[in-house]
Nucleic acid binder design. Sequence first.
DNA 1: TCTAACCTGATC
DNA 2: GATCAGGTTAGA
Length: 285
Amino acid sequence: MPELPEVETVVRLLDPRLRGRRIEGVRELFTGVWRQPAGTVGSWPQTVRSVRRRAKLILIELEGDQLVVVHLRMTGHLSIHARSVPLEKHTHVCLQLDHDEELRFRDQRRFGSVSLESAASLAASRFYSTLGPEPLEISATELAARLQVGRGSIKGALLDQRRIAGIGNIYADEILHAGRVHPAQPANTVLSAEFGPLHQHMQRILGSAIRGGGSTIRDYRNADGAEGTYQSRHLVFGRTGGPCTTCGTTIRKIRVAGRGTHFCPACQPKRRRHPRRKRRGPAPA
DNA sequence: TCTAACCTGATC
DNA sequence: GATCAGGTTAGA
């Protein structure tokens, strides 16, 4: 469910509410969702220093060197409730707060996780340590350098968190449509000149989506239970069979990089081009 | 580099 | 009943 804009929206709501609050303990309602890597010992209470985002991860930084790391995956939610409020279905972990409240994690599909990590164990983890740069901080040049590689699709490259971190299925489709690039175009055949517009559209779309509170397709709600609004501005995602707002052509849905992929066949024609090959042999004199 | 798998639930 | 879903990854 949540990509960068949705996670950012949750973080912006939680940060002012959790800063300085005490976490007094953990209530685990379903085994396996709360995780503590070997060697990490949780001693409560601990005070929250801040709530930040990295890629699609929510980082609840504690005073001391530990953090609570939340990955919402597809259907995860975080929200704060009085402990007396009945638990909603699929609530798996509660971080008990001061003032008789708790931060609840609920996740229908149970793909998500909440873990206690030391700064060192997080930094060393396979997933975290290989995350690519943030889309809102990367330059157009670096974007091209990281994406214009390999025979796999450009959409697959955008979804690869090691190349660039935080983009998921919705925004990959929207960015490629705005940049007029076919999602199945091999990454190493996307022209260098196309990365300038792709970079600009990526930052514009993600920025607007954050301002709109993210996109709600079905499950996503922010930490207040509110839906996002950016779905109304999607130009291709979820608009299969409808007219492209740019040219009127019918939006099609295909499968690319294993994901349902929406695009306009007219605005995003698939080009046949020679891939950029690495130079072989000795450099010219 | 692609697929199946992890889960539950909604929709076709 | 089969297929699909906003993410990630182990395995082919």
